[in-house]
Each structure stands twice: as structure tokens, then as C-alpha cells.
Design a binder for these strands. Structure first.
Lengths: 303, 303
DNA sequence: CCGATGCGGTGCAGGAAATGCACCGGGCAA
DNA sequence: TTGCCCGGTGCATTTCCTGCACCGCATCGG
């Protein structure tokens, strides 16, 4: 939409940190860009940037305006989606930020099921930890977020929440695999593999360990849940994960067992959006569906 | 803001019902306007108007877009207010739609008190009945609404509510003035003066009368609360009003008495805004103040 | 039936507005 | 100092928008 061109340029400048670089990105000359911005500032009634020797940076007024631009843009996209909808096109796009646990099973299934009904809808999926996912929502870069454990932002509006007790995962021939439920100390006493500190599972583990005067001391600490799942098959170690990202492997080599609730508190998976925002039709429908699927989630079998 | 020019023109066309008339209002030629709109429609991806023999009318897509425009405009105004605010200017504008009962005492006092602290803030006050006031909010024409009794729209977000029992008003020498509390039948048996049907007070009276198998049969029915207050001084009649619009007159000629709660249900005064909307700073602050003032409202003395 | 009227829409020429180019002064690093 | 990159500006050019004249069409009144 061309009437937002100036605002788009302002965003580009804010991102690039310099008018000349932004001009290059936007395929116009720096002088044209400069003048557009000066003109806009005059009309708006306030400067938007701090002019520094090495470039420019948004000042508070600019931050405010940029926020407005993003909200406007998102609302316009929603309107266009609704219009397309009422002309029967059923097109649209869903953008979503989620944590890694959703990647192997839950999200692929949900997206595929949704696209079976609405083949015109496309998706973008970003993998973000909790803090990043909330930033995604706040900047309107994603419509939805699906993250594990605590929510920081007040602007995060919870659509649905589902409990996910932390599970220990291990090779099928691991001694602990014989038990139905594990104690935390059983897991921490032996070699273990854990996600990095910023992940929700680790957060719960650290909290629980501290309470029990123990320490999470992983032999491998990683940001990749997939690495954890595969590593425990190689060394006699225990990993930690939430059940939504776990399934019985076909060959039965990987097993998972819940950790006693009295040791590690049950965490929650949150589906949320930016507070007060009217989502595009496609995203709103998908969110409703996700919420239903989360609510219908079976108690995970201790496979 | 010039980047909204096309949208402003679209709104003008929607309001005028014809491109030629809108062009005249906007001081451009019809051809220029026509082309702007066609161009916008092409870029937007959908027609916005039904072309009729005698002019044009918004189609659903146009309605949606217009709603977006109004929201955008309002949000931009809020941002500009915030920017002015952070440069310490404390300027701003509050627009409010309210019912007549607030005009004599409550609103003037509140506005004056607010302006004493923030002299840069200006106000516009529209007198609207309940339905109209809600339409004002929905079209972003007013920031706040302060109305009596029931709320229709789901988009009306209640900020504060305060009970206001219906009172009968009469001349000091009216026989009924001797009682501390009146029964509805006492009022309806004699000549009475009442607001028109669309007002909340009348709504409650009609409801109560129907329940008691009686009828509100006013000798004067009017849209002016002021007329009611003055009329009862001229003829031995009873009028109806809510206490927030009543004070002891200096000369003691006008008195008001509550009507028994078992006869007429207590109505409520609602302070509200458009659901989900971020108000301009000035309006938000004034709303907070209004809410506090409403909550602190004294039980009305039976003067 | 027919002309008058008011509507949205278009071809074309003139004019306003945005752009690109060349260049300035200034901070910064080597 | 020299060279570099920054934001900002004067001027010629181009792009885009506007205004005018006019078309086809539907409606209305005689």
C-alpha cells in the first residue's frame, strides 16, 4: 500500500541505523530518502531520529510512531484478509513464533490439518525462546506465539494454556527406564543433558534443584532439543523435555518418563497473541483450532 | 497527515454519497478524485464502492476499510498526543459524548478542575442519547461516553459505573414534597412531565409502570431535561431525573425526592470507551479522573 | 418519445511534486 | 593531515497527479 511508503522508509532507516544504507536497501537515493523523512517530521511536528555522527537512531517519538506504523500495517493486513475472505478467496497468512518442542509433531500435524481445509493459507514459523517470542508479538512480526512457561510481558494475551509436566528421556536400556515415574534426584545423580538456561524446561529444573539443594550440572548443555533427544541414545545420559515434543519412537529405542510432580512443578504451554490486537482472519481461525487441539491433548503415555 | 489523503477522500465520498459532491467538498476536481479512488482500489485489490446510477455507496469491503481508517487516524492522534506530552507540552484534546443529566453540574465542574491542572487541554462535548453515544465511540468520533442505562453495543467497554436512582422533581410547595420517599403511583397519578422514550430515565419508568399495570402519560414529553426542571416550577407537575443532574436550588423552589426502589429499579450511569482502543493521553487521564469522581459521588441529599 | 440533468469514467496537456546528481560541512580513524 | 562516511541542500529532470473537456449511461419530467 503506497500511502504507507514514508512510514515504511522510516522503519527501514530505523533498522539500518543510517539513511544512506536504508536508501540503498529501498532502492532510492539518500537525498530523496532524507527529504521524505525531513518532510514527514515537519508534518508530524517532531523529529523522529537522533542525528549522530555515525548515523541516526530513533528517538522516543520515533519509537512511538514506529509502533503505530506496525499496528496500522497489521490492521490493514487483517482488513485485506477479511475482504479477500468475503470475496470467497480464503487466502491468508499465519505467522507464528514457537518453541522447539512444537516442531517435531504438534505443529506439523496442526498446520497440515489446517491447510487441508484451507489450501490457500500459507504459514511462517519462527523458532524463538520465550522472551524473543514475546518481542515478536510486540513488534507485530508474528501473529501468534506458542511458548513454554512463564510469560513476562503484560501485552501477552493468553488464548489457551495446557499443563506439560517435565519428562526425563533416555535410551530404552537405561536403568531408570524401568520405573514408571522418576524422582529428580535419580536424574541429576547420573549424567544428564539439559537445555540452556533461557529455556522453560531448564528454568523449572533449576528452580526445583535449588529447592532440593542440588544442582543441574549437565554434561551437555545445548539450545537444540533435537540434539538432546538424539544424544541420550549415544551415552547413558538422561535428558529433559516436555511430552508434546515426544512420541514413542518406532524402533523403541527412546523412552520418556514423567518426573514426580512433588519434585518439579508442572509447567504450562501458552498460546498467546498481542493483547488487544485484532488478528487476521486466517490467524484467528488457526488460533482457535490450535486452542482446541491443545485442550484435547491426551495425557501423555509413559512410553 | 498527508499519507492518509486517499483514505480521507474515501471517507468524504462515503459521507457525500457521490464523487462529484465529495470532490467539491474536498476542493479538487471530480476526475482527480475518481482516479485516486480507482487507483487505490486497484492497489487494495478490491472495489470499495457500489456504483449506482445516482452516485456511490460503500460496499462491505469499503466499510471495513473505513473502519480501519478511523482506527488508524485515532491511533495516530494518540501518538501525536504522546509525543507532545513527552516534550512536556501537556496539550491534547478530549472528546466526549454524554447525556443531558451531566450538563448542569457534573461535567462543567470536572472539566474546569481538569483544565486547572492542564490548561493546554481542550474539550469537545456532544450531547447524545445512549444509542447515539455508542455510535460516536464506534466511529471514533468521541473518545469517551458517559450515558445512563443500558448499553447495547458489545464494543462498549465500561470504565466505571455508578448507580443513579430515579428521582421525582417538583416545586417546593407541591404536596408530594412533604414525603421523604415517593411511590411511583403517587407521581403517575398526578400530572407529570417526562423525557422522550429514547432516554434512560423514561425507559426505566416505562418498565416500572408496565410492571405495575400503569402508564406513563406525561402532559409534557420532551427531549430537554432543562425544560423538565423548569416546567415543574410553573405547573403543579412532577418531573423525573437522576440526582447527578440535580442540586438544591439556591432559592429553594425546586425539590427532588427519590422514588422507592421497589417501584423503579435503580439505573446506572456508565462511563465507557470503544473496546480495545488505546485512548489519547489526555482522554485517558481525564477518564481516570472522571471514574474517580463518579466513585466518590455522595449519596444524593434528598433536597 | 425526447431533451435535460447528474452520475462515474477517460484522453490529453500542463503543472506540481518527488527524485537524482553533484556537492557542502562535519565528525572520526588512521 | 588525509580519507571516509555521515546528514543535508541547490538545481535540473522526471515522474506523477491534476484539471479540462468530453463520453456513455441512467433517470426524470414533460
Amino acid at each position: 500500500m503506497r500511502h504507507l511508503y514514508s512510514l515504511r522508509l522510516i522503519e527501514a532507516v530505523a533498522r539500518a541505523g543510517s539513511m544512506r544504507r536504508a536508501a540503498e536497501d529501498a532502492n532510492i537515493t539518500a537525498s530523496a530518502l532524507n527529504r521524505r523523512i525531513r518532510r514527514f517530521e515537519a508534518e508530524f511536528g517532531a523529529e523522529l531520529f537522533e542525528r549522530l555522527p555515525g548515523g541516526v537512531r530513533l528517538n522516543p517519538a520515533g519509537e512511538l510512531l514506529l509502533q503505530h506504523y506496525r499496528a496500522t500495517q497489521s490492521d490493514l493486513a487483517r482488513v485485506q484478509g477479511q475482504v479477500a475472505d468475503l470475496s470467497g478467496e480464503r487466502r491468508g497468512h499465519v505467522s507464528l513464533a514457537c518453541s522447539q518442542a512444537l516442531l517435531p509433531y504438534f505443529l506439523p500435524e496442526q498446520i497440515a490439518a489446517y491447510r487441508a481445509d484451507h489450501p490457500g493459507v500459507t504459514f511462517s514459523v519462527k523458532v524463538r525462546d520465550r522472551a524473543e517470542a514475546e518481542a515478536e508479538l510486540a513488534s507485530y512480526a508474528s501473529d501468534l506465539a506458542l511458548v513454554f512457561e512463564p510469560i513476562y510481558l503484560v501485552d501477552f494475551e493468553v488464548i489457551e494454556t495446557v499443563p506439560q509436566p517435565v519428562h526425563a528421556i533416555m535410551a530404552a536400556d537405561h536403568p531408570l527406564a524401568a520405573k514408571v515415574e522418576l524422582r529428580l534426584r535419580d536424574c541429576l545423580d547420573g549424567p544428564h543433558v539439559a537445555p540452556a538456561a533461557r529455556y522453560g524446561v531448564r528454568h523449572l529444573l533449576d528452580f526445583a534443584a535449588r529447592r532440593g539443594a542440588r544442582r543441574v550440572a549437565p554434561i551437555v548443555e545445548t539450545e537444540s532439543f533435537e540434539l538432546i533427544r538424539h544424544y541420550v541414545l549415544h551415552e547413558r545420559a538422561v535428558g529433559f523435555q516436555i511430552p508434546i515434543g515426544l512420541r514413542d519412537t518406532r524402533d523403541g529405542t527412546l523412552v520418556f518418563r514423567p518426573i514426580a510432580e512433588r519434585d518439579v512443578p508442572v509447567g504450562n504451554l501458552f498460546l498467546g497473541q498481542m493483547r488487544g490486537r485484532a488478528l487476521p482472519v486466517a490467524s484467528a481461525r488457526f488460533a482457535r483450532r490450535l486452542a482446541a487441539a491443545l485442550k484435547a491433548l491426551p495425557e501423555p503415555p509413559a512410553g
